[in-house]
Design a protein around this nucleic acid. Sequence first.
DNA 1: GTGAAAGCGCTAACAC
DNA 2: GTGTTAGCGCTTTCAC
Lengths: 336, 336
Amino acid sequence: MVQDRVTSIEVARRAGVSQSAVSRVFTPGASASPKMAAKIRKVADALGYRPNVLARSLITGKSRIIGVVVAYLENQFYPDALEKLSMALQARGYHVLVFMAAQDAGNIDQVLDEIVDYQVDALVMASVAMSSTLVERCDAAGIPVLLFNRRQDDARFASVTSDNVAGGRKLAEFLIKGGHRKIAHIAGWEGASTQRDREQGFREGLAAGGMKLFSRAVGNFDFEQSKDAARELFNSFDPPDAVFVANDHMAFAVMETLRSELGLRIPQDVSVVGYDDVPIAAWPSFDLTTVRQPSDLMVEKTVVSLLDSIDNPLSEPRQVAIDGPLIIRGSARKPQ
Amino acid sequence: MVQDRVTSIEVARRAGVSQSAVSRVFTPGASASPKMAAKIRKVADALGYRPNVLARSLITGKSRIIGVVVAYLENQFYPDALEKLSMALQARGYHVLVFMAAQDAGNIDQVLDEIVDYQVDALVMASVAMSSTLVERCDAAGIPVLLFNRRQDDARFASVTSDNVAGGRKLAEFLIKGGHRKIAHIAGWEGASTQRDREQGFREGLAAGGMKLFSRAVGNFDFEQSKDAARELFNSFDPPDAVFVANDHMAFAVMETLRSELGLRIPQDVSVVGYDDVPIAAWPSFDLTTVRQPSDLMVEKTVVSLLDSIDNPLSEPRQVAIDGPLIIRGSARKPQ
DNA sequence: GTGAAAGCGCTAACAC
DNA sequence: GTGTTAGCGCTTTCAC
């Protein structure tokens, strides 16, 4: 049966009190006497009354909705982060409105329109880069923006990432100590700060050990393209003896291709390392040496930063980079 | 800089027209003269005006928000479905508000409160069972509910699933034809219709071939528990020669355990089949024979059913079950 | 086709 | 502490 939602006026009428009394009972921080509260709650429960968040938002100017723009849900890192973020916000009375951005990001402007329409209190951009147009618009609309797993040089943006430069360096050091001489890299999408930082750190690490990149291909964070990249690099008279793949998701594609198509053994013939430490990396079939992105911590920092920028609109955006440990497993030859 | 959002009143003032004129220009289906529309649009764009969806919702009673309750994001089937559902709804002017249900489902009642608060136009329950209390409450609140990948005997619920009974039967027939004599099952959570239907179909298929289940354990749709289930079943003097695992996600856990812990070869020593056909099932390391849940079709049916129940509140809820094909790969011995 | 006015359900001053 | 009142920004009659 379809029936109109019960309003505070109806509750007030039945309880013999004013409408504002009802409002106060359901407004956190407002005060009503215990007996008044009890009486109203009783009637409200009987009627199944719940305050209309939308009407409340109209007045307070706060929707308690956080917009989250995501794209690469295929990469397990993101659903995992989304789940954690959603639960953490839920615990604080916020909810997540999902905006899927097509991977090509062509529709991002339209998506932003929709976001503004919904009066979200803040915006999390996960796996998406920000154009300067978007900057202006969010700024103009007064919506705090936080980049998750991406970073922008523009100081107007808060961001939470792992320390990708340090992570890249750790991987290079580890591969060098493992005695590798021909170290390659399969890159993600080069427009992403995540990619640039990891590669920069990796190259720095190689340089510190007196080495440089042996070869390089691009996989664009995409599974199929990463397979192609693997073919390109390893169908060669002089293939690499180690490869750093820009994230675990791509690394799985590379490992599958190396083993099943090219007949290479990991790590006997070639070492593979990734980045993220998604759950699959620990599966025995992959046993992937990688750098962990501490998603629990990243989400926690995200939530704190988000709520701070909502409560305190003048606070400075902070760029947080969290150190992630090297997780040594069996996919890369270890130092003796 | 933080500034107030531009309102229709401000646009009207600057354009020298009434506020209702502005409203009409931005309300789909309302009529305004082309020149009036042009003038207003120009001013609105210059000011960055966008109508406030929340205020609109207050009047129309429609929020254009669909609540989605989801739990097992670890199983790739769900993020994939969520992505598709979100995109399909976005294309129709709706958006997804995510409610994470803790896996134990103890907090589902509180979650429902929050859902009602947000005046969602409809509710999709993915991977979550409905108690009869919840039934009443959604019904009373006039919120259409659709179960995704779950089914309830209660006719008040629309649902979209694959034909799990037929799928289970196909797997049984395939294993029998493959010459297996000792066929086991590792079950998911037994409270789920998905589990019950798959197992029922599977048992029917066995019976039709004159066989019955050789052994059985429970993995509750959980990765770790599924490993335990595999150990339980295969650490035996007389282990099964084939096992149907209730979904792909669990099947990967089982395959990993069988190969790396118990030293069994797949399919030479034991055949493994799953259910869902998530992308990982096609990876060479698993090459899993499974039944495909056609998520594109399931999402499409979901969207159609959802929008129908919103536009037409008196329409009868429908229970849709979509046939899914058997995807034959290499993880199970094939018929000669 | 356009403007004036009412009101969606609620919160937040403001008096008492 | 409680009731009264004035809006939040918008859509939708209703006259013209």
